[in-house]
Structures are given as structure tokens and as C-alpha cells.
Nucleic acid binder design. Sequence first.
DNA 1: GCCGTTGGCTAATGACATTAGCCTTTGCGT
DNA 2: ACGCAAAGGCTAATGTCATTAGCCAACGGC
Lengths: 192, 192
Amino acid sequence: MPRAGLNQQIVVREAARLADEVGWPRLTLAALAARLGVALPSLYKHVRNADALAQKVSALATAELAAELTTAAAGRAGTDALRAVAAAYRSYALRHPGRYPATQQVPDPADPEHVTAGERAVGAIYAILHGYGITGDDAVDAARGVRSALHGFVSLEAAGGFGLPRDVGRSYDHLIEALDVALRSWPGGRPS
Amino acid sequence: MPRAGLNQQIVVREAARLADEVGWPRLTLAALAARLGVALPSLYKHVRNADALAQKVSALATAELAAELTTAAAGRAGTDALRAVAAAYRSYALRHPGRYPATQQVPDPADPEHVTAGERAVGAIYAILHGYGITGDDAVDAARGVRSALHGFVSLEAAGGFGLPRDVGRSYDHLIEALDVALRSWPGGRPS
DNA sequence: GCCGTTGGCTAATGACATTAGCCTTTGCGT
DNA sequence: ACGCAAAGGCTAATGTCATTAGCCAACGGC
């Protein structure tokens, strides 16, 4: 019997793809094994268990998101940077409905790459705040606020929480403009 | 063998309590049956299946949340109302870590009480916006923004997404102040 | 080519959800 | 009181998924 030629990277990547198709909570070892054309227990040669797989997918998704946010922020500042990062954030969540929820998992302290990815994602937010002149403790509060707004919107949207027909993209634009206003008047920040 | 004397209300209420203790995703018919002192299949006399139970718990939690938000908003307007509702929102989520995620489930259209509860919860937000002079389409956008901020913060907090030691309550206060600023400058609103 | 490691497999176990079918209790109408 | 239908328990059986144990072939370095 020929080998399937799997390794952890392939398994985790395919798991991420599967999650995008069936949804994060329905990412299952059984479904993944079927899709990879191996028997279920074979997966245990590449991941410790189902939780560990979820953690690995989380690390992958977090790294991807961090990269896209960083790219969006590059070469921009202030309102420009905010708009670009916000757009990248929502875009990632919409393109990857299964991976996105995975990014909300707290990084496994034992996985340095995961931790770093998380820091890079948050770092993109801090970079924006720097452009608004917000630093120190104020930046901690502001970063929490920005993350809350972005994550809240995107997760409500994904959950189908916005029932009315009013255009969701427009609501997001308004939210980001409001965020811009709020950051300009943030304690410790510099108004435009 | 004497009867346990269950009915749907008791089962759903106990399920909500169990969810608060073990977490929403670990709400399981098996654990619920054990806690109620009956065999697992007995629960099927009171709920159609596990999904239906989850939907019922969602309806209960949504109704509770709506009631607390409405109470908080009563007799207040503007910034006052915003602060009170925001405090009630976070308070509910912290007191009911299992029920809160359930409120994010889209109401079952076939359950009128669930639908009404959802409308009442959103209604509390609209009442606040009214106090800021925001109505019509603008209110739809603003309501989405307010929900995003509140839900985003509260769910990040619950997920342990705020790693730094900085006081979380203070960050929340700042977010609400920022929301106040944003609502005052909202398109269609009336600045203070 | 030999041999240890690696990566597959099957089989067995255990949690949970679900359905079928039985049997007792309950309570209502007479 | 009584009879009886409905309601509310139960056990047993099935299916899915996660996990562990243990087997065996393929691969790679020497």
C-alpha cells in the first residue's frame, strides 16, 4: 500500500481549507481524514489530537491575518492606515469564514510561532494608533477598542446577526469613520 | 420508579445554568441528563434534539438580556442611557458566560418568543440612538456599530483575548466614552 | 541490501446523539 | 372508585466521532 505522503503542514493546511468550507465548529478529524484519503487514526501521526489540530489551524490563520494586516498598514498612516487595515481585516474574515474564528483562540504559549503571529496582528493595530499619537496605557485601551469594533462587526456579520437588508459594507464604512473620530479625540491622542 | 417531574421549562433553565458552568460549547445532553437525574433519552420527551435545546436556551438568554438592557435604559437618555446599557450588557455577559454566546444565535423564525426577544434587545439600542437624534437608515448603521463594539469587547474579554494586565473595566469605560463621541458626530445625529 | 524509523492500517474502547419500543404513573371522565 | 389514554420515564440498539494500541510495509541512510 503506497503512502499518502502527508506531513503536518499539509494536514493543517487542508484542515484550514476544510474549516472554511464547513465552518470552524464542524472541523472534524473524521472529515479531514476522508478528504485526505486516509483512515482517521492515521492523522495522529501528524497531530497530537483534535485540540492540537485546532490550535495549529489557529496559528496558521493568525499568521495569515497578521501578514495581511501588516501589508495593509505598510506605507500608510492615520485615517488611511485605519481604513486599509479595517478593510483587510473584514476581507480576511469574509474570505475565510472557517479560519477567522480560529484566530480568536488564545495562542498556545508553547508554540512560539503562534505567539509571534498574535503579537504581529496586535502590532498592526498599535502601528495605527501610533499614527494617531496614542501611546502607552492609552494605546492599550485604544487597541482593545479597535479590536472590539472590528471583531464585533465581523463576527456579527458572519453569524448572520444583521437581519435588515441595509448594505452591510456601508455600515462597516460608517463604523470605521466613527472609529477614526473616536481615535482623534482619544485621551492622550492628538486631534487632527 | 417515581417520576422526575421535568418539563421543558425546567430542562431549558437547567441547561442554561449548566452552560454557565461548563461553557456554551460543552452544553451536552448527556451532562444535562446527569444533572437532572434522568437517563439521557428521557430528555427527548421535552426537547426535540440537541439543536432545539440550544435554540431554546438561546431564546431564554436573549429574553433575559433584552429585559436587563431595557431596564437599564429606562428613564435615561443620551450618554447616561448609553453608559447604563453598556454596563448592563457587559454585566450580563460576565455573569452568564455560557448563556451570553447563546444570545448570538440567530433567532429561530418559528419561535415567536425568540424573535420578539431579539427585537427587544435591538430595540434597547435603537432607544439609545433616538436620544442622540439618530433615526432611519443612519440608525441601522449606528445600531450595528454599537452592537459591534459591545459584542466585540465582551467576547474578546470572555475569550481571554486581552492579555495585558491593564484593567479591563477601564478599557471598557474608554470604549463607551469613544462610542459616545462617535454617536454625537454620527451622520444624521445631533451633536451635543 | 539491512535496519531502524516513519507513516500507514485495523481493531477496540468510550463519549455522545438519536431512535424504537416498553412500561408505569398520572389524571380525567364516568 | 375505575378504567384508560396520554405522558414521562426507562433500556436497548445504532451511528458518529475521538482516542489508544498494536501491526506491518515503505523509505532512507549506511
